[in-house]
Design a protein around this nucleic acid. Structure first.
Lengths: 316, 316
DNA sequence: TCATTTACTTGACGGAGTCAACTATATAAG
DNA sequence: CTTATATAGTTGACTCCGTCAAGTAAATGA
């Protein structure tokens, strides 16, 4: 149903900019507080950051370190020399390029890093420990969101996964569908109510043998869903297909429809049918590509708009 | 319905700690990148931070600056001396304490700060500009969440406000109620479905003269809600009262119930009734305090549990 | 009145980080 | 193959950010 192209980039407004700046000032201080604890160690803050990188990644070169931590090449060179003198690291010249060498912590290096690591861990644990568990999760979720949005090359390893319905999903799907259609097509709150009604009925009369829902999840967030419900022995109905704007272009819509078709076939249905509206072109393309045929169209007035409803069928 | 005491603090698990640490490393780098742009100016980073504070707050003392920015007192003293020499600030000894003085930017100080401020503003604008508008808002919302959770003394100015229902609310309320009751009482997904059904019906048959919903919002987030629906000319029913755990203790539940009672009275109803379950003790206290009387109790099996339903009435 | 604390100042100092020049190797162009 | 250019890393020289400790003056408390 709601599937269309990625939204365009937009010039930010002042309130948002100020909020980001306020956050930056706040977090500058926050990081400063956390770093204070580490200052008592034999290593400077930057040395600790370098050790952290070395402890968690393999085969780094001096340039890698400088780039990823934003450090001056000369400074990195000196740091590494110091570490080498203390026997904390070992360097192996790369066969592919004799200018570079692969840097690794020695066992002594790991020993030196361990207490630093523990201090940092404990300090964050203390910070988190001040909050109740549910708030801890909200915090981490928000941090992940910030990080993913700001980090260009932070694409999740798993683009998305499909899972069955769980508590909280039907409310979320109701909300998102309601908001998306209101935003994109000006539909009123009766559409959101319709989604709520459909999902409530789905759960109440759920028959696992004949019906199923799929939730597409990405980084712990719901980014799409679809449902198959039983109309009769012969006919199943695909309902409420949607994909979040932020997750479009990954083939999630196509995949969800394929799952429906596979399920309907496996359960022996003869026909998979669906109802949609003509303005939802992106969804239509998916249905067409999957082999659905337009059966009939009829105008209707719903959700505060004049619309043209469409019934599509796929013979299984 | 769901109103109970604040949850306890909990020892954080390792995944959450690691996620926070990852975020700290990420944001250390992020702030470093943003700061690079400011380095070309005549002021050091810390000087710029001090100027920012002075430009945005009045009547600061040297100690205030040092405390809020986490700086050494000696260093602050020197910075201020330099600023004074450049005629960027003026100091007025406090009458209440001759050791302290109130620091203010001079017009020249404001002029010196303006380009710094603009650079920082533009840089953040560029950062945000890379994202589509909807993502910009998600980013800022997440940042606000992080800041509010970590900043002890960052209570919002307005504790909460009440507003009417809008698109997206019924899904959100459905989700949150479903999740809260699942978590706290082990109710299954049929409760969430029931909430969805009630809210769908509310919207579909909504009669503004006789019915109303209130949403409690705090910092742009829904933290509670309640609905009054018409049962007959004489009888109104209060439904779906809930307050987010994070927003409890602010009197939101009491306020929501009061709104319902006021509305029911104003519309000429004779009775306000409600159905709840005996295990929801915090909600019961609110009803009792508002004058509701327990009319009847009866056991029932719903949402996967054995429960005792209660009907409460308030004569208006 | 005297001891203690607080706000700020000042001298002395260290080391984190920068800049530019340099060597050695790799890559691209002709 | 030769030559020009780019990249990886090193090193000397330097700056100045920020810390530490000692000191002064005022405020507070006993």
């Amino acid at each position: 149903m709601t599937i269309h192209h990625q939204p365009d980039k937009a010039a930010p407004n002042k309130d948002l900019i100020d909020a980001v700046r306020a956050f930056n000032r706040f977090y500058t201080r926050q990081i400063g507080l956390l770093d204070e604890g580490l200052l008592k160690s034999a290593f400077s803050l930057t040395e600790a950051r370098v050790l952290y990188e070395l402890a968690h990644r393999e085969g780094l070169t001096a340039t890698d370190l400088g780039r990823d931590l934003g450090l001056d090449a000369g400074y990195v060179s000196r740091l590494l020399k110091k570490f080498e003198r203390l026997h904390l690291i070992s360097r192996v010249t790369l066969v592919s390029d004799a200018r570079q060498s692969s840097i690794a912590l020695t066992p002594a290096g790991r020993d030196a890093f361990a207490p630093l690591n523990k201090d940092s861990h404990d300090q964050v644990a203390a910070l988190l420990g001040r909050l109740p568990a549910s708030e801890q999760e909200r915090l981490v979720k928000s941090m992940r969101t910030v990080q993913r949005l700001l980090d260009d090359n932070a694409e999740p390893k798993i683009p998305y996964l499909l899972r069955p319905l769980q508590v909280g999903d039907i409310g979320w799907i109701t909300r998102r569908q309601g908001m998306l259609y209101a935003q994109d097509y000006g539909w009123d709150e009766t559409y959101e109510a319709l989604v709520a009604e459909i999902l409530a009925a789905f759960v109440k009369s759920f028959d696992p043998k004949w019906e199923r829902g799929w939730i597409a999840e990405r980084e712990g967030e719901v980014v799409g869903s679809v449902f198959v419900v039983r109309k009769s022995d012969q006919v199943a109905k695909l309902r409420l297909l949607y994909v979040e704007p932020s997750a479009r272009g990954l083939g999630i819509g196509k995949r969800l429809v394929e799952e429906c078709i596979g399920f309907a076939r496996a359960r022996g249905y003869k026909t998979l049918t669906l109802w949609t509206n003509d303005i939802l072109t992106a969804a239509r393309h998916i249905y067409q590509a999957a082999g659905f045929k337009l059966i009939e169209e009829e105008p209707h007035h719903s959700f505060g708009k004049d619309l043209v409803g469409q019934n599509w069928d796929l013979e299984l």
